[in-house]
Design a protein around this nucleic acid. Structure first.
Lengths: 251, 251
DNA sequence: CGGCAGGTTGAGCCAGGTCAAACTTCGTGG
DNA sequence: CCACGAAGTTTGACCTGGCTCAACCTGCCG
C-alpha cells in the first residue's frame, strides 16, 4: 500500500442498477423499475479500483459520490502533523464522499483495501434527478443521516469505552454489516491492518493486537491472522452493554 | 438542570425568515425574497425553550428539524449503561435533529443550556419545498455534509489528541463560531459544565479543569469560572498543529 | 530463499482516570 | 435580602490502562 495515488480510473464498463445486487442497500431503495432505469443512466461510469489505489484525495474538487459495488474501502483525514484518523470503513452498497458536499472539496482520502468496484454518481445530476423523484431525495437524506448516526456511535466508542470494548463493538458492527450483505456474520476476513483498526478506534496497533488476544483467551473469538471467528456473540455484546459497569450517569 | 423533561413547547409566536438575523447562516442562504417568504410559511412555530428544558428526546418519533434562533443547546446519546456522550453543542443558526432522519426516530437527547428560541421546521414540508427550490435542497445537503465533517473533526480529536490539545481545539472552535455570529472571538461565556465539555472531548471533568488551569498558567487563556478569554490564539493554534510532534505518519 | 510488511509479546512508564476533600457559585425558600 | 443546600469547580494523591520502545515472529512476494 502506498500513499501515492496511482491512477484514479481503471477499466470502464456499463452498469445497470436494475440488475445490481445492491438495489436494497444502495440508492435505488423503494424506487420502481422506471425510476431505477433513470437512475441507472445517471451513473456515468463503473470503476475498478485495485487494492492500494485511491478513489479520491483530500483537497480534490468534489464532483461525484461513489457507491461501493463490491470491495472494501477506508477513509481517513490527516491532521497538520500527518497524523491519520480513519473515519470509516466502507463496504458493498455504502456511499462514499458525503463529507465533500459541504465545501465542494473532498475532506478525506479514500483508498481501496481490496480490489473493488464503484459506481460513480455525479452529484449535480443526482440532485437534478432528486427533484423529479422525491423518493430518491428522501432516501438520500436518510443515507446522509445514517452517516451522522454512525459517526455519533464511533464518537461514543472513542469517548467512553475501553480498548477491549471498542474491539468488541467494532467486530460486532462488521459482523452485522456482513450479515446484511449475505455473508457469514461469524466468520470473516479483516481487510484492514491492526494499525488501521487502531486509528479508527483511537488505539495503538499494539493495543489492538493485545485486545484481540485477550478476547481470544476469553473464548469469545478466534483470531487467525486476519481471519476472525466470533464464537460467542452474546458475550461480546455483554462486553459492550457492560453489566459490569456501575452506571453513574450524568445528571 | 434535570434529566426530566418539563414541557416541549412553551410560548408560540410568528416568525419571519426575511427579518431574521440568521439569513446568512441558516437554511435561507442564497434564496431570493420570494423563496424566503415561502420558506417562512413552512416554519410552523417558534418555540421558547428555557434552560434545562428538552427540545426532544431519544426514541421520540421524528417530525421536525429545529433551527436555533438564539441560545445554546447540547445533544447527547446514552449508551446502555447510561453513559452519556455529548455529540455536539449547537448555537444560533445551526440545525438540530439531522440524525433522526435516518430512522425517523430521534437518536439523541437535546437540551437547552440557556434560555433559547428555535424555529420548528417540519421535515416533510421541507422536503416538499426542496423540490420546488433546488437551491434550498442543495443548501440542505451542504448542511448535512457539514455535520459529517464536524463529526470527523471530533473523531480526530478523540482519537489522536492529548487533553490540552483537545481543550485548545475546542476553545478555538467555539471562538470561530462566536466570531461568525458577530460575538467576540476572544471573550466568551461557556454555556456548558466541565463535565459536559469532558463528555464531548472524551475526558473526565477533573482533567478538563486541570487542562484549563494549565493553559492559563501557560498564559494562553484566562479562566474565570465560565468566562473564558483567549489571550494568545496563535499559541493555541500551535498547540493543535503541534510543530512539537514528530510526524510519523501511517504508510 | 531472502526481504519486509505486518503482527505479537514483554517491560516500563506516564497521561489521564479515580477518589477525596475543600471551595465557589447559584438558585430557592423563608 | 439572606441563609442554606445543591451543583459545579479546583486541586491533591494515588493508581492503572494504554502508550512507547524493543525484540522477535510469521506469512507473503519477488
Amino acid at each position: 500500500m502506498s500513499t501515492q495515488p496511482r491512477n484514479y480510473l481503471a477499466s470502464r464498463s456499463t452498469s445497470k442498477c436494475s440488475t445490481c445486487s445492491l438495489r436494497e442497500l444502495c440508492l435505488p431503495v423503494g424506487l420502481d423499475d422506471r425510476e431505477i432505469e433513470t437512475l441507472s443512466k445517471l451513473i456515468e461510469r463503473k470503476y475498478r479500483i485495485q487494492r492500494g489505489e485511491y478513489l479520491f484525495h483530500a483537497g480534490l474538487a468534489f464532483k461525484s459520490l461513489y457507491a461501493v459495488r463490491n470491495g472494501f474501502f477506508k477513509s481517513y483525514v490527516l491532521d497538520v502533523d500527518g497524523h491519520q484518523q480513519v473515519t470509516g470503513f466502507y463496504m458493498t452498497g455504502e456511499l462514499l464522499g458525503l463529507d465533500a458536499i459541504s465545501a465542494e472539496i473532498h475532506t478525506c482520502d479514500t483508498v481501496a483495501l481490496e480490489d473493488s468496484e464503484v459506481c460513480e454518481v455525479p452529484f449535480e445530476k443526482l440532485e437534478e434527478l432528486s427533484l423529479k423523484i422525491p423518493l430518491l431525495m428522501h432516501h438520500f437524506h436518510k443515507i446522509m443521516s445514517r452517516e451522522i448516526v454512525k459517526d455519533h456511535t464511533t464518537m461514543m466508542l472513542l469517548g467512553n469505552r475501553k480498548a477491549e470494548e471498542r474491539l468488541a463493538a467494532f467486530l460486532l458492527n462488521l459482523s452485522e454489516r456482513f450479515a446484511k450483505r449475505g455473508y457469514s456474520p461469524k466468520n470473516f476476513i479483516l481487510r484492514m491492518t491492526r494499525e488501521e483498526i487502531g486509528s479508527y478506534l483511537g488505539l495503538k496497533l499494539e493495543t489492538v493486537s493485545r485486545s484481540l488476544s485477550k478476547l481470544q483467551e476469553e473464548g469469545m473469538i478466534t483470531v487467525n491472522n486476519r481471519h476472525i471467528e466470533l464464537n460467542d456473540i452474546y458475550q461480546l455484546n455483554r462486553k459492550i452493554c457492560g453489566s459490569s459497569h456501575q452506571s453513574h450517569r450524568l445528571k
